[in-house]
Simulated scan of single mutants.
Amino acid sequence: MMTAMGGSDLNKPTGDLNQAERGEMPVVQGVPVAGLSPEMLGAPQLAASAPAPVFTLPPEWLVVLNYRVAVMCFAFINLLTIVLNVVTAIVNRARFPWDPSWGTWPVIVTGVVFMLGPICGLIGARYLKRGFVTVYLAFSFLQCASQIAFAVSSFWLSAIFFAFVQAWVTKIVATFWYCLGTVPCEHRSQLLELKDEEVHMVYW
């Protein structure tokens, strides 16, 4: 009777859930299985070789995959918010102090300029383009600074809450931007081809 001896390593855990999400899983090595030789089974003789190790992705690469969808969601929310603010300003233009002779063009132009940040964030996260992510990161820092300044000046609870939220979003974008810089350009297309089962979406 053939007996498979896997050793005690097969019973060891490979890491907890946090390690899996952060890509800190240990490298798993192949374990040889003891049994009858090929000659006894009538199989052809094969060259003996060491078991091939199974490699995992670097932690930074897994962070890129895990944060990619989160950055896209944040960029879409920022874009939607800017569009709604521009529409609100145009509809209620009597409440804003610009010269009526200018029309609504200053608001539209300003809105389009601020839309460039989230649009670059969507493109950069979708196709792993670090240059576009850099633009969105600069936009996130600018928006975070403005939210903090407004929270300090007004000291409203809602303003303080939104300042914390924007600081959290900026932290996610900055982490994604940093980890994306560790991935060589020639390997970024390969990351996009990985199956969804290997990706754990993270929003913290």
Rank of each mutant, 00 (worst) to 15 (best):
1 M>A: 09
2 M>S: 11
4 A>V: 06
6 G>H: 10
7 G>C: 02
7 G>D: 04
11 N>P: 00
16 D>L: 06
17 L>V: 09
21 E>C: 10
23 G>A: 02
27 V>F: 09
31 V>T: 15
36 L>F: 09
41 L>R: 09
42 G>Q: 07
51 P>F: 01
51 P>G: 03
53 P>S: 02
54 V>R: 10
55 F>V: 04
56 T>D: 13
58 P>F: 06
60 E>C: 02
61 W>K: 00
62 L>Y: 08
64 V>S: 01
66 N>P: 01
73 C>H: 11
76 F>W: 13
77 I>V: 11
81 T>I: 05
82 I>D: 05
86 V>P: 08
98 W>Y: 12
102 W>L: 05
104 T>I: 11
105 W>P: 00
106 P>N: 11
110 T>A: 15
112 V>F: 11
116 L>C: 12
117 G>T: 08
117 G>E: 08
117 G>L: 05
120 C>Y: 07
126 R>C: 14
127 Y>H: 01
128 L>P: 10
130 R>S: 09
131 G>I: 03
133 V>C: 12
137 L>T: 08
149 A>H: 02
152 V>C: 08
152 V>D: 04
154 S>I: 00
155 F>D: 10
155 F>P: 00
157 L>S: 06
162 F>S: 12
162 F>Q: 11
168 W>H: 14
168 W>F: 14
169 V>F: 14
169 V>D: 07
181 G>I: 04
187 H>P: 03
187 H>K: 15
191 L>H: 07
191 L>N: 05
199 V>C: 03
200 H>W: 05
200 H>M: 02
202 V>H: 02
